[in-house]
Design a protein around this nucleic acid. Sequence first.
DNA 1: CTTTTAATTGCAAATAATTTGCAATTGCAT
DNA 2: ATGCAATTGCAAATTATTTGCAATTAAAAG
Lengths: 151, 151
Amino acid sequence: MTAPAPIPGEREPLGRRDYEKELRDAGVRITRPRRTILRILSETDDHPDALEIYRRAIRTDPSLSLSTVYRTMKLLEDRGAIQRHAFAGGPARFEQDHGAHHDHLIDIDTGDVIEFTSDKIEALQDEIARSLGYDIVHHRLELYGRKRRKR
Amino acid sequence: MTAPAPIPGEREPLGRRDYEKELRDAGVRITRPRRTILRILSETDDHPDALEIYRRAIRTDPSLSLSTVYRTMKLLEDRGAIQRHAFAGGPARFEQDHGAHHDHLIDIDTGDVIEFTSDKIEALQDEIARSLGYDIVHHRLELYGRKRRKR
DNA sequence: CTTTTAATTGCAAATAATTTGCAATTGCAT
DNA sequence: ATGCAATTGCAAATTATTTGCAATTAAAAG
Ligand SMILES: [Mn+2]
Ligand SMILES: [Mn+2]
Ligand SMILES: [Zn+2]
Ligand SMILES: [Zn+2]
């Protein structure tokens, strides 16, 4: 089983991290479940929870267990390969860490998750923390909103 | 048993909401457990979780149950009497709703919770949501930080 | 103050999300 | 190919919270 050659014309985001290599180099074994889960995370642009990742995973590897999904998410989080989110109410949801930080707007009617960034807000947060004598290690900003009624 | 007369000199925050009356007027029965819990919430300025509220409550009423704490928190939340927070990791934590919105900075070493407000950030959030076609219904902003090392 | 009755409570059991112990399996360095 | 620690699947345990139900009680009515 050779790695598929890059298909010309197929958009492969430049600079996409090679998690498999990163993990291997860090001394982490690349097992079938881990490869499956990594692929699922790389193929999606939404924010699936553990159960959803599990459902998608068993389509490829029916013997893979939910425990392994949880264990793998923890491993990937510790390695900085993914981000874990805990949106209001529901279970933890995950997404690949693409390097660039962003925050989320959740549509309270549909559950849709929209990503956004704001350098201004990030700067203000730093400023506030500093004025309180703190350095921010991480933060969480979630906007819960409803689509604006048509004019 | 008459209500204690206001003690002159005793600082009774002006405009503090009379939750007992508000609830009674809304048709909610004022029971012993509820009175106990309301008093605990009014006496603290931290953010206790259900178990901590329970522990404080049974000092006054040993028969009060944890179930009732949970049920009461839900009732108070629905009535807008308290705010429920879900800081990273731990169980839900509560605080009386004093009307003025604020956000939190959590000291990741000590667990201390520091409150702050920023009109600028609030305004930016509205602006961002609007630009995405949304109206904010509520939001969550938590800064997790570490005390700045003495320069 | 007694009666009346629906709201409320305590307790135990149920849920939901996640974690963990352990024996069997497997990646991967020799 | 071999050896063994890392990893996995499964079941059971944990943590936080919710719920069914019979007993209790707040407060409306008399
Ligand atoms: Mn995201
Ligand atoms: Mn607060
Ligand atoms: Zn941010
Ligand atoms: Zn805010």
